[in-house]
Design a protein around this nucleic acid. Structure first.
Lengths: 226, 226
DNA sequence: CGGAATTGTTACAAAACGGATACATTTCTA
DNA sequence: TAGAAATGTATCCGTTTTGTAACAATTCCG
C-alpha cells in the first residue's frame, strides 16, 4: 500500500538524469527518467508523486509541459530545475501552488531536501471526492471504476467509464467534444471529434434504460442530466 | 463549479504569454492568449474577467485596443504591461480606463497579486458570469446554455442562444447586424446581414410573450430591453 | 401623404449535425 | 500465440439547423 514515492525525472542532459536517478534511488525513491517533455508525458502515471522538471529542453519546454499537465487537471507537484544564467526576474516569483524551484548547478543534498519537503507537504489526495455518484438506481463508483444499475454491474471499457465519470461529475454542464478529448485522451491528443460520438453511442447502449441521461445539445456537445 | 475567472493575456512575445499563461492557470484561472490586439478582439468574450495587456505590440498597440474596447462600452478590467516605466505611460494607461499598471520586468508574484486585487474589487464579475441572467420569469443560463421561461425550458439552437446571450448581457445597448455577425459567426466570415433578421425572428417566436424584449432601432440594429 | 428604405415573416434548399453501424487496427488475455 | 475485447475512423442516413430569397409589413422622411 504505502509504496515508495515515484519520482519522474525529466531532463535532456543525460548526465543530470543519471545523477539524480542514482541519488534518489539511493534515498529509497522509485525513479523514472525521461529525456524530453514528450517522453515525460508518456511516462507520467497516476502514481507519480513528484516531477523533477528541467525548464530548458529541446522540443517542448518544461513550462509547456507543466502547463499541459495542469490543464489536464493533473496536480502532481513539480520541482523546476533551471540553469542559473537563464533565470531572470520574471521567473523568480514562481514558487506558487506547492511547486518548487531549484537553480543549476545544484547540490544533491539540496535536491533531496526539497524533494522531501515537497512530498511531506503533499496531503493525501485520496478519499476526497471518491464516494460513489448515485442517480436513482444508477451508481457510479469512481474508485472501483464500476457502473451499477440496480444490483447489476455493467461492464464498461476504460474510455466509456471515463467519459461517463467526467459527465456525471458535472451534471448539466455541457462538454464540447474538444473538452472531452482534452480530458480523456490526455496522452493521445490527435483524436477525431466523431470518435467521441461513437463512445457515447456505446455508452448509451450499455446504459440501456438510462441512455437519455446523456443528452446532446446540437452544436455544443454532450451533457449528463440528473 | 467552474468559478474560474477568465483572463485574456495579450502579448506578442510568446515567452511572456507562456509564462503568464502557465502561472495564472496554475493559480486556478482560465486563460486565453492572444498574440496581437487584433487577435485579442476576436478572443475577447463576455465572460472575460480581466485583460492583461501589453502596451507595446506590433500592429494595433495595447492602448489603442483599450480605447477601442472602452468606446464599445466594454468595462472589462485591464492591467497594462509595459517595458517603459514613465509617469506619462502610467497616466495614459489609466486615462483609457485601465485598472492597473505593471512594468516589465515583473515578478510573477506581483502579477498574481495585482490580478487578485483587481478581481477582488470586481466582485460582480464572478457572480455575473456564473449565475444565470434573470429578467422577470425569464432566465438565461450562460453555462448550461439554457433558456427558461418560468419553469419551462425553451429549446434554442446554438445560433439563437448566442445572439440572445450577446444582447442580454448588454441590455439597452444597440448591436448592429455587423456587430452581431462579428461576434457570433467568428469562423464564417461572409454572412448576409439579413440572416441576422431571420434568427431574430426565430428567437422572438420562441421567446413568445417576451418577444418584445428584443427590439429594433431602424437603421441601427437590435437591442435587449430590460 | 407617398415613395423609399428598412424590417418582419415565411418557405425552401443546402449544409451541418448527430446516431448508428461496419470495419480495420491495436491491445488484452487466456 | 490465437481469439476476444477495445478502439478509432469512415460512412451512411435521417434530422435539425442554417442561410438566402421573396414578399409583406412597417418605419422614415421629404
Amino acid at each position: 500500500m504505502n509504496a515508495k514515492p515515484k519520482i519522474l525525472i525529466v531532463d535532456d542532459e543525460r548526465d543530470i538524469c543519471e545523477i539524480l536517478d542514482f541519488n534518489l534511488s539511493n534515498e529509497g525513491y522509485e525513479t523514472v527518467c525521461a529525456a524530453s517533455a514528450e517522453e515525460a508525458l508518456k511516462k507520467l502515471s497516476a502514481d507519480t508523486s513528484l516531477i523533477l522538471l528541467d525548464v530548458m529542453m529541446g522540443g517542448m519546454s518544461g513550462y509547456k509541459l507543466a502547463e499541459t499537465l495542469r490543464r489536464e487537471g493533473k496536480q502532481t507537484p513539480i520541482i523546476f530545475l533551471t540553469a542559473k544564467d537563464t533565470e531572470n526576474d520574471m521567473l523568480t516569483g514562481f514558487s506558487v501552488g506547492g511547486d518548487d524551484y531549484i537553480s543549476k548547478p545544484f547540490s544533491i543534498k539540496e535536491v533531496i531536501a526539497r524533494v522531501k519537503a515537497v512530498l511531506k507537504r503533499q496531503p493525501d489526495t485520496e478519499a476526497k471526492n471518491l464516494s460513489p455518484l448515485q442517480f436513482g438506481d444508477l451508481r457510479i463508483d469512481l474508485v472501483l471504476k464500476e457502473l451499477n444499475i440496480g444490483s447489476e454491474t455493467i461492464q464498461l471499457t476504460k474510455t466509456e467509464f471515463e467519459i461517463l465519470a467526467l459527465l456525471a461529475q458535472n451534471p448539466q454542464r455541457i462538454f464540447s467534444r474538444e473538452d472531452i478529448i482534452d480530458k480523456i485522451w490526455t496522452e493521445t491528443p490527435y483524436i477525431t471529434e466523431r470518435t467521441v460520438d461513437v463512445h457515447i453511442t456505446r455508452l448509451r447502449k450499455k446504459l440501456a434504460q438510462h441512455a437519455s441521461l446523456i443528452s446532446n445539445r446540437s452544436g455544443y456537445g454532450y451533457r449528463f442530466n440528473i
